[in-house]
Amino acid sequence: MPRSPGWYYSGSTTTDLQEDGVMTAEPDRDAAGSETAEALEEAADSTGLDVLARSGFAVLAVLHILIGSIAAGIAFGGYGQAETSGAIGPLARSEPFGPLLMWGGCIACASLALWQLAEATVRVRHRPPRERLVKGVSSGALVFIYGSVAATFAAFASGRGRDSGDSTSDFSAVLLASPAGAPALAAVGALVLGVGGYFVFKGSARRFRPELNYFEDTRRGHLLNALGVAGHIGKGIALALVGLLFIAAAVNHRAEESTGLDGSLQALLGYPFGAPLILAIAAGLICYGLFALVRARWGKM
């Protein structure tokens, strides 16, 4: 069949356009980009990353249980820092395995952050635009959260660990001093508050159930369901408290008011209902940790 003088479709997998004898590379670039995305997705689905990401879930599970236990102690008048550094610090100082535990936790959480990055990018490229946006925002936020935990492990492993509340206040101070100022800090608070609200919704609506490879209608299934509901709601309330402190710091232009979860719990002690609420949050964090342990073993990846 004779060619038309304009352009023609070659019929090959990589479509070439020929226009007056000049080859255009747009389709080739599209094909190359698709092949790159497929290669990245294949790497993200590798067994090695799967094992490391699951270990990241297990590390986070232990951290939630430890933080919940510290929070419970605070509710009964005890001492401790109910935050990541408060849970990691004693482990970092344990001899002779402290540094090894820190680097192991760093690698596990960094791998989980990388897995979530794949969730937000290459794994959602074939979904509808709205689903890509929602997944990009949710998994993107988790990339930041898990990456921050990995950085905390690395800091303690190298002997530079510090109080998470101080780090949060320093972060707030940097934002307040930036050109964006208080609105940027308030936006961070609103984002954390929104994530907390999503966790409460996810727990109350039982949206966590599809994350498990099985959910039998048995006693074990009912137990996991109870842990998931209580855990997600408790974690959501804890995140909401942290978000509210960010917003308060932005409104009052006082970076020192954003002191993370531990500061939120300490502030609650000044109210009559403070101790029971702290105890409920502590129980929720422990439940979330137990659920995350199950997620690490039987969760969908």
Rank of each mutant, 00 (worst) to 15 (best):
G105M: 07
G161E: 05
P5Y: 00
A120K: 02
L91G: 04
S111E: 02
G136W: 02
G196F: 08
V62C: 06
Y9S: 11
I278Q: 04
D16A: 13
S12R: 13
G21P: 00
Y146M: 14
W115H: 15
A113C: 02
D28R: 14
G33P: 01
F156C: 01
E95Y: 04
A173V: 02
V122Y: 06
A155Y: 03
A154T: 04
L60S: 12
V294D: 15
G263V: 09
I278E: 04
G11Q: 10
S178Y: 02
L285S: 05
T259M: 10
I74H: 04
R29S: 10
I67E: 00
A282V: 03
L293N: 07
C109Y: 05
I107V: 14
A187I: 14
E41D: 15
F208R: 05
G73T: 02
S138F: 13
F171N: 09
A154S: 10
L245V: 02
S264A: 15
R125M: 08
P210M: 05
S264M: 09
D163F: 13
A37P: 01
L268R: 09
P179F: 09
G263E: 05
L277G: 05
D163C: 11
L261Q: 12
L133A: 10
R125W: 03
P128F: 02
E131P: 07
L17N: 02
A72S: 12
S264K: 10
L223Q: 12
A240D: 07
A240R: 09
P129G: 05
F273G: 14
L268T: 11
V143H: 10
I145C: 11
E35F: 10
L277I: 14
V134G: 01
H126M: 08
L279C: 09
R54K: 08
A151C: 09
S85F: 00
L244W: 14
R3V: 12
G231P: 01
L185K: 00
F291Y: 15
R219Q: 11
V124G: 05
A150S: 15
L52N: 01
A296N: 08
S204A: 15
S178A: 14
L224W: 07
G289M: 09
G299C: 06
G165M: 07
F201G: 03
S12N: 13
G189R: 09
A296E: 03
K135E: 12
L269P: 06
G98K: 03
V174C: 07
G203M: 03
A53K: 00
N225G: 11
M1A: 10
L279F: 14
S4P: 01
V200L: 01
I233L: 10
G140A: 08
G80C: 00
D20I: 09
G104M: 06
S148H: 13
G68T: 03
V200C: 10
P210K: 00
Q18A: 12
L244C: 13
G73I: 01
I286H: 04
W298H: 15
G236M: 04
V174I: 13
G136T: 01
S178G: 12
T24W: 12
L293D: 09
P2W: 08
G73E: 07
G33Q: 14
P96H: 01
Y214Q: 12
S69R: 15
L40F: 13
T259H: 13
R29T: 14
R295N: 14
A190G: 10
S138P: 05
K135S: 15
G194C: 06
P96D: 04
V188Y: 04
D163E: 11
G6M: 12
I107Q: 09
L49W: 05
S85E: 05
G6E: 12
